[in-house]
Design a protein around this nucleic acid. Structure first.
Lengths: 264, 264
DNA sequence: GGACTGCCATCTGTCAACAGTTGGCGCGGC
DNA sequence: GCCGCGCCAACTGTTGACAGATGGCAGTCC
């Protein structure tokens, strides 16, 4: 009845303090703030403000920010501070392609030999999404969708693939503030899920791969449809002359030095 | 005549101090130590020893280690220390598959429309490798090979793809101490490079993708051939019951506490 | 009136010190 | 001789404090 849970059950408060260092908790919290939009893309991260807000010293905050910098959520400029990374439309499209490639890989591997229990888990998740769709419950659909893809990558690819997929998904959140799953797309999305499972069950690796890639490509297409800056027709062709894809040039003036604006 | 250089030319010493923080330099140095084998996989990272060795305080070292932890080169255990990550054979194979997928993606994109300058750069690199091979100069071949793949990913995929490819390559170095490019494989490897370029030049996206994937798969095969623990026949099928792929369980006893062993 | 220069508050980068935990070693008991 | 307990040193986690840099604001010169 119950599916394998890809998410940790519920750690005890004491367990948390015993196992996780303060730095990792701070990193987790800052990451949550970024992904939830509390810290919008391009925003400057004030170390001591964050430290005061989280009731810790600046040390753990700095360590956390360094970690987030490595993972690509934050860019740092010496003596100037760290900024929430901004993802350009072009980068977002590239990330979609990467996710499509590794998803297709996982689907192909799964088609070559999936365990019955794994298939059952995936099918149960599709059913859960279908239920959520009928009930017009986007949050539930969103959660189940995350679990589905995590399971797909975990079963077909492995732990590294799963983590990579999630990291890329996090980066995608940095492109503006955008709801990545619109309610009206639930039906189409879940139909693609079913197509994937069908190909896997048939043992057709090529079809499974194509279906997995098409699913992410569909997400990319739906993403493009809602964004005016990405013209679907002209994918980046050869002559990329004027594109200087920097990770994220810090904003011109980051409001740092100077005395605080007082209404005097 | 000269190719686009994918590596930074040569930063001035003053420029380094101005732009890079001490933490990033320490991170770079520790990463170099890990990849060069000076810090073997599984080794414990002693913070104050590293700090003393690099003539800095523990703060930057800790920040650097946190960054390396996020990038997957290091695993940390609370109150116990950080260890250089050990990559299992299974994880190594998974990483090869991921690299194959994103390389194939880049090749396909390149086949859909590569700029002449880009093709010229790639062809020049293949020629350089061929020269190095004839001269029996593995280091030169190795360097050119790195540049070739960096260019391939940069041109066909984008900056994110390129960084991802390199990060995955770095992780691969953590599997034992192994020379990833054997001299006797240079001919075969470069022939595959030529096949990739041929498919790209023909504008055949499917063929280019297949060639790119086959090239990395060839690397995987050559890797498996030199490692007894990876049985080529039985790729991980469905029933993965007993595999608890932890990122890297810390060694049983890490030689930390206790008084120093004195010969008294 | 416009542009330049000096000043200064804020923030980051780095360091040194304090507290808590871990794990081995030696001692004592059985 | 073997097992368990307590001690202790080393190390990590965290904090507070100090130095350097940055960028806006005000005053001043032309």
């Amino acid at each position: 009845m119950e599916e394998m849970s890809l998410t940790a059950p519920e750690p005890t408060a004491l367990e948390i303090v015993r196992t996780r260092s303060l730095s990792s908790l701070v990193a987790q919290e800052i990451e949550r703030m970024i992904l939830s939009g509390a810290l919008p893309a391009g925003e400057r991260l004030n170390e001591q403000q964050l430290a005061a807000q989280l009731r810790v010293s600046r040390g753990p905050v700095r360590e956390a920010v360094r970690g987030l910098e490595r993972s690509g959520l934050v860019v740092a400029v010496r003596n100037q501070g760290s900024y929430v990374r901004t993802v350009s439309a072009q980068e977002a499209l590239e990330i979609y392609d990467l996710r499509a490639a590794i998803t297709g890989l996982a689907c192909a591997r799964l088609a070559e030999g999936a365990a019955p229990a794994q298939m059952a888990t995936l099918r149960a998740l599709v059913k859960r999404m279908d239920t959520a769709r009928r009930a017009d419950d986007p949050p539930s659909y969103y959660a189940a969708n995350l679990e589905f893809h995590a399971a797909l990558l975990s079963f077909g690819g492995g732990p590294r693939s799963q983590r990579l997929y999630e990291d890329l998904g996090n980066e995608l959140h940095l492109f503006r503030r955008r709801a990545l799953v619109q309610p009206e797309n639930m039906r189409e999305s879940n139909a693609e899920h079913a197509t994937i499972l069908k190909a896997i069950a048939a043992g057709d690796a090529a079809a499974a791969r194509a279906a997995g890639e098409a699913h992410i490509a569909g997400g990319k297409r739906r993403f493009q449809a809602t964004d005016a800056t990405t013209k679907p027709g002209t994918g980046r062709k050869g002559e990329n002359d004027d594109d200087q894809h920097d990770p994220s040039p810090p904003p011109a003036a980051g409001r740092r030095g100077g005395r605080p604006r007082r209404a005097g």
